[in-house]
Design a protein around this nucleic acid. Structure first.
Lengths: 148, 148
DNA sequence: GAAACACTTGACGTTAACGTCAACGGAACA
DNA sequence: TGTTCCGTTGACGTTAACGTCAAGTGTTTC
């Protein structure tokens, strides 16, 4: 059904693909974020491991700590737990969503502000009159400059 | 023109308002992110300092390091520099915007996925058939569970 | 069968972003 | 005038997330 159901990956395979180092993968394993099979001593990663890694890295990109990523992954695993466990998981999950939305708002605000500043830089003509840069959050003047 | 043009703030004022510690403010000063006036030894923060702090903290919330925040603030200050300086600033700025948009995409994807998982938790009935949780990024099965 | 690889496990080093503590200074008040 | 608050400057401690060795174990390759 899937494209390649049971492919496996070496530590270097995943490291190269996701632009990280083998050390990083071992570190994630030490932290209990991922647990590949072994062939003797050598780690063998499955497709599910790869998906987990992808999740971990995206979690990192959005600002989660490894501990937080671990907690989120645990939530998935709790999916098959008892009713109360599931409710706890759902609440933690919704909290995260709320936090992420707030973070998205911060990012949007920053983008707007930086774009405004960029436009101001690329086209000073339109701002010769004011020559001031005002923070959109507080309405305070952060700095001023003199157009030529 | 502004509401309260020339108010000042003590280190504790700002610490309390922004839910940080005085130590943090001193640290930001050590890193050259902010430079309040002095009355003798004591730091006296202006409205502009407050705006700067607000910017710093939002930068942190969106995932900037202190060094990156410092660089961004420098860009603002370069606004009044020479033409070439300004072009450099604008490029760096646009790079940042691109990165922020990518980050926003990551956040949106994470929100979608978490919301899907939340819904799955809160209403298992609809998933009794599959009982599997699939990563949206890779299409790989991350875990499975048994509905009651 | 020796060399070259890829992988392993320690274990110590590093950087960022503060926390924490000691020791001190000046105003304000009982 | 002594204590109680802010505030200050060192300076060392801490945590997270790896980096960076060293030293050893298999496997393929010439």
């Amino acid at each position: 059904m899937s494209k390649q159901e049971n492919r496996t990956y070496s530590i270097q395979d995943l490291a190269t693909e996701f632009h990280i180092t083998p050390r990083t993968l071992r570190h994630y394993e030490e932290q209990g974020l991922i647990a590949p099979q072994r062939q003797g001593q050598t780690r063998v990663y499955s497709g599910a491991d790869r998906a987990r890694l992808s999740w971990i890295l995206r979690g990192k990109r959005v600002g989660f700590s490894l501990a937080e990523v671990g907690e989120m992954l645990d939530l998935y695993d709790i999916g098959d737990g008892r009713q109360t466990q599931r409710e706890v998981a759902e609440n933690r999950c919704r909290e995260r969503i709320t936090a992420l939305k707030a973070q998205r708002d911060d990012i949007n605000a920053t983008i707007v502000e930086l774009e405004g500043f960029c436009d101001l830089l690329s086209n000073l003509k339109r701002c010769e009159k004011t020559g001031q840069w005002v923070d959109t959050t507080t309405g305070e003047i952060m700095s001023s400059f003199n157009p030529e």
